[in-house]
Computed example of a mutant assay.
Amino acid sequence: MNFEHISEKILACFHSLEGNQSLFVMAPDGEISYNADQPVSAASVIKLGIMIEALKQIDDHKLEFESEISIDPTNIVEGAGVVALLSKHLNWTISDLIKLMIITSDNTATNQLIDVLGRAEINHTMKKAGAFHSKLMRKMMDRKAVKAGKDNMVSAKDTYLLLNELVNSHLLSKSSMDWAIDVLKQQQFKDKFPAKISNLKNQVLANKTGELPGVEHDAGILSTSSGPVIYVFLTAGLIENRYGREAIANSGRLLYDFYK
C-alpha cells in the first residue's frame, strides 16, 4: 500500500461526518490536506499556541520555569484539570502550569497562563509562526464570550505550523523544543489518535487533544524511522462526538501502521 492509497483511506474516514473538518498531515512521503485553512472552534488545541508563547518568553528571559505564582480566583473554572479542586493557597511554577495545561488540559492553569503571558503576545507569536487563521479571543470556559461571538479559532494548517515550531527551529531554542515534545508525550487523553493502536511504542507520540460538545480534535507529532509525521485532525459541528473520535482513531491507526 502506497502513501497515496493511505491518504485516500484517511480522508474517507471523515467524508461521512457532518459539520466542518479541517485536516492536514505532513509526512516523509507527502502531505494530506482537506479544508486545511478553514478555521474551526479551537477547544483545547489553542493551548499549543499558549505553550509556545510561554517557552518563547522563557527563552527571552522574561519568565523562568521555576517562577512561582498563585492562581487568581477569577481564573478558577470547571472542565478539564485538577487545579480548581485543590487548595486555593497553593503556589505553582510556570513549568507546573504548562504541564498541567498540556498533559491534563487544565483550564484553570491555562487561564492563569493567559494572564501571565498576555493575550496579544500569544496571538502575535502564533502569527509569527504563520498561523494567520488562528486567534485566542477568550479564556477557557468563558461561555459569555462564546455567546457574544468570541471564540478561539484554529485551522489544521495553522496547527501544523505551531507543531512544526517544535520540530524545526525558528521561534524557540532547541532545549525549549525538546522540553515541549517531552511534555506532549505525557498526554493523558488517549481516546482519539492512539485509541486503536494496541502496540503503540513508548515515546513515539507527542500530541494535544481538544473537545467540546460537537468538537473533537487531535494534533501531534508521530516519531517514525522515516522522520516525523505531523498530523492535525480537527472536527467540528458533530451531531455526536463519538463519530469524530472514531474518525480520528481510524486515521491514527492507518498512519501508525503505514510507518511502524
Rank of each mutant, 00 (worst) to 15 (best):
K139D: 01
E216S: 01
I197V: 06
A206D: 01
S223Q: 14
M141W: 03
E165H: 05
D142A: 07
G214W: 10
K201M: 08
F193E: 01
V146G: 08
M141T: 00
A206L: 06
S225P: 11
G210M: 07
K208D: 05
Q186I: 00
I221L: 11
K157L: 13
S223G: 04
M140W: 02
A156I: 03
D151F: 02
M141R: 02
V146Q: 14
M177P: 09
V232T: 15
L200N: 09
H170Q: 15
K139Q: 08
N199Q: 14
Q203T: 01
Y160F: 15
S173N: 11
Y231M: 04
L166H: 12
D182T: 14
L212C: 11
L136W: 06
S175M: 05
H170G: 09
S155L: 08
L172D: 02
L205I: 12
Y160W: 15
D218C: 01
P228A: 02
Y160D: 00
V146C: 10
L222I: 07
P228W: 01
D158H: 07
N199H: 15
L205D: 07
L205Q: 11
L172S: 13
G149E: 03
K208C: 10
A180N: 13
G210D: 06
V204F: 03
M140R: 00
F189S: 08
L166S: 13
M153L: 15
F189N: 08
D178V: 06
L212E: 14
L163N: 08
V183I: 15
N168P: 00
L205T: 10
N207V: 12
A195Q: 13
M140Y: 00
V229S: 02
I239F: 12
D191K: 11
S226F: 05
D191S: 12
A148M: 13
G210S: 10
P194I: 03
K190G: 03
P194Q: 05
N152A: 12
Q186K: 14
Y160Q: 04
T159G: 06
S173Y: 11
S169H: 06
S198T: 09
A236D: 15
